[in-house]
Amino acid sequence: MLYNLLYPLSEHFILFNVFKYITFRTIYAIITSFIIAIVFGPKIIKQLKTLQISQKTKGYEPERHKEKEGTPTMGGLLIILSCVVSTLLWADLRNYYVWIVLYVFICTAAIGLFDDYIKTIKKNPEGLSPKSKFLAQVVVAVTTTILIIWVDKSNIATKLYFPFFKHLIIDLSYFYILFAVFIIVGTSNAVNLTDGLDGLAIMPTVISFGTFILFTYLAGHIKFSNYLHIPYVAGSGELAIFCGSMVGAGLGFLWFNAFPASVFMGDVGSLSIGSALGTVAIIVKQEIVLAIVGGVFVIETLSVILQVGFFKATKGKRLFRMAPIHHHYELKGWSEPKIIVRFWIVSFLLALLALSTLKLR
């Protein structure tokens, strides 16, 4: 909005020329969303307490999770508010990709909100049925993928690019829709599974979106993308604004979600964050890099899949003490802050590995 309103004035006032630069607007998008989160965080938390929208354990978590009962949830609303407002302020609102990411972000937030509503207001700890939730996510993911293909001007939307290789490209054609839906829905649920300890999910989220600030900027710059041998996606540079807004919103949320948490994000936050992250990766053709930078989310998801598979194959035996894997370490006696910080360290190292793919091609 500010870009669309103020940049045209640069013909008369040279000061407004700074709005031309994505880097400038990304920095201020981070700052803006962080400030919004810090200012409105206490108000939202207070309102959630008033409405008694609080965490309820399902009964099979580690014993110490009972202490978390009563902590307000649905704090993801703070992330959504901060990110959406900041994006609308600093992004070029004529950009299709900005609206596509906001579409998937808000739609999956609505799914998560309804799920949280059932858990908290309706007092049903199981929430929305898995089939209903999955179907709703698939519908949003399919429409999102079709929109991405429709606005593609370079005829690369259905192609899969492999990091570490310059010329390894596979055109999946119509099968790409299934692949993209898997990425969006899978990432959405992976972040949701990771959100089990105070601050565990939000910091890897911040690191992931921080990494994609660079990938989106480079993918939208024809000279840089050609030099680095990554696909050029015209207009994708504006997504750096959204990624920056997510970084600021995530840090602002962490202010209240750090151990011991004053608020949890709930499904309204985790589902929307994951779907947006997956969509950004799809647009800039870095789906495989997403699996690297979001490795913590992948590990958490794989631990659940392996646990269930091993349990069925061995007729009752367990591979881990509990899944997702952060619960395994809890039951081994690790303190919650130790688990959280170590997962953050792993996430940071994976981000560096992801960034190395820019040169190793």
Rank of each mutant, 00 (worst) to 15 (best):
I292R: 06
I230R: 07
L200V: 11
I27C: 14
K315W: 03
I292P: 09
T216H: 08
L352P: 05
F19D: 04
G186L: 06
V142N: 04
Y28G: 08
K133L: 01
F256Y: 15
I345H: 04
T158Q: 13
P72T: 07
F162M: 08
I38T: 13
A234D: 12
V39W: 03
G186P: 02
V206S: 06
M74N: 03
A136T: 06
D195N: 04
V268G: 06
P337K: 10
G112P: 04
L89W: 05
F343P: 06
M203E: 03
I177E: 10
V293C: 12
H326K: 11
L6W: 07
I282S: 10
Y174C: 00
L353E: 04
G266T: 06
F256L: 11
F13W: 13
L78Y: 02
H327C: 11
G295L: 01
G220C: 04
I207L: 15
F311G: 06
T194M: 11
S173N: 14
T187L: 11
V298W: 02
Q52T: 15
S275D: 07
F259I: 00
K359W: 14
L89C: 11
G127Y: 05
W90L: 15
T50F: 08
L5W: 12
V104N: 05
L193R: 09
S335C: 02
T158F: 05
I146R: 04
L352K: 01
Q52D: 15
K332W: 07
S33R: 12
T120V: 14
T216I: 04
S335L: 05
L51R: 11
T87F: 11
I283S: 09
P260K: 14
N226L: 00
A249S: 13
G127S: 08
Q47T: 12
G244M: 12
L306Q: 03
A91M: 14
G186Q: 10
H167K: 13
L172D: 02
L214P: 01
I146S: 06
T357G: 07
I35H: 00
F242V: 15
F348W: 08
Y103D: 10
D171C: 12
R25G: 12
I299E: 09
P130G: 05
T87E: 02
I31F: 14
L88P: 01
L271S: 00
L214G: 08
A157Q: 07
I299T: 13
T145R: 06
E11W: 04
L5S: 12
I282C: 05
G237L: 03
S33W: 07
E126S: 13
N189W: 01
L352M: 14
A190W: 02
A136G: 02
L353P: 03
G75Q: 01
M265Y: 11
H328C: 01
L302P: 09
A29M: 11
I325T: 05
Y161F: 15
D195L: 08
V85A: 14
F209L: 14
V185D: 00
I100F: 07
I183L: 05
L228W: 02
P231Y: 10
W150M: 06
Y174M: 13
D116N: 08
M74A: 12
I30A: 14
A276P: 09
S225V: 03
L239C: 10
I241C: 08
S82R: 04
V140D: 01
